[in-house]
């Protein structure tokens, strides 16, 4: 069959794209496969991609030896709790900045973003000491507070860019139609901004789930989320590749799935409206 030029280039590009994306995805795939191997097969010098004895032993081992579900639950509470709390604080602020603009709005936004640039180490010791004095060390509440504050600027920014896309006149129309500000927000703004709010929530859940500075420093056994749990594999358990893999898979799969489902919204939100 004769092939035209565009079909030929499509084949080349497809092969190239699959090859490169396969390489990028490979470490994750390899982790997934290793989690089903025995320890011996995992470190074998002639590793096999699929031809090995599949086993679920590693998963049951990880679950038996460590309070995985505790850590999982901690991750859920911290990431979802801080994201919801952040929304409650950020939505009114974003409304103000998007719809009641003043000369200061731009500076305020920039300032908020700049707090995100403050290196955590600049406030590490006081936060650590305050946490110690208020008995917040190694508590979920303490981490929810910290993660809310850490991600608040990003939430305000994202919501601001989404709100800005809602035509001003629609909100004014609702005001003419007899809405109070609260009714305006609930009946008109929130339904219109729902996709944006949802993606803000999702992105912040992901960021909080994966945050690995404060979670490592401010937690020990009780409130440690999955990031800290995995860090405990750094040595010497890390040499048990199959178990490390099983634990890793259990730590990343929930967020991987969530992220795949919301990838379109994520990209737009994260770029601060720079990319439509």
């Amino acid at each position: 069959m004769a092939m035209n030029n565009s079909n030929k280039s499509k084949i080349i590009y497809t092969a190239l794209a699959w090859g490169i994306s396969g390489m990028i995805f490979f470490p994750i795939l390899w982790t997934l496969l290793t989690s089903f191997k025995t320890e011996a097969e995992a470190i074998s010098a002639n590793p096999s991609l699929f031809m090995f004895d599949w086993t679920l032993e590693n998963y049951s081992d990880v679950l038996a030896r460590s309070p995985y579900f505790n850590h999982f639950w901690n991750s859920v509470v911290i990431s979802i709790g801080s994201s919801l709390l952040g929304l409650v604080i950020a939505i009114p602020a974003a409304w103000s900045m998007a719809f009641v603009q003043t000369k200061r709005t731009k500076h305020l936004l920039m300032w908020m973003l700049s707090t995100k640039m403050l290196p955590p180490v600049g406030v590490l010791i006081p936060i650590y000491l305050m946490f110690r004095d208020f008995s917040l060390l190694d508590t979920k509440l303490g981490l929810v507070i910290v993660m809310t504050l850490v991600n608040l600027p990003i939430m305000v920014w994202m919501l601001y860019t989404y709100f800005r896309e809602i035509p001003h006149e629609i909100l004014e129309a609702s005001r003419m139609d007899g809405c109070s500000i609260a009714e305006e927000i609930f009946h008109v703004l929130l339904p219109l901004a729902l996709p944006g709010i949802a993606s803000t929530l999702l992105l912040n859940v992901i960021l909080a789930w994966n945050e690995a500075f404060w979670t490592l420093i401010l937690t020990a056994a009780n409130a440690a989320p999955l990031t800290a749990f995995i860090a405990s594999y750094s040595s010497p358990e890390g040499l048990f590749y199959a178990k490390l893999s099983a634990a890793s898979v259990m730590a990343i799969v929930p967020i991987l799935i969530l992220g795949w489902f919301s990838q379109k919204q994520l990209v737009r939100g994260l770029s601060f409206g720079a990319v439509k």
């Binding site: 006149e169 629609i170 129309a173 609702s174």
Partner: peptide
């Protein structure tokens, strides 16, 4: 309004 400002 100019843009009609209907609730979409």
């Amino acid at each position: 309004f100019q843009s009609y400002a209907l609730y979409p």
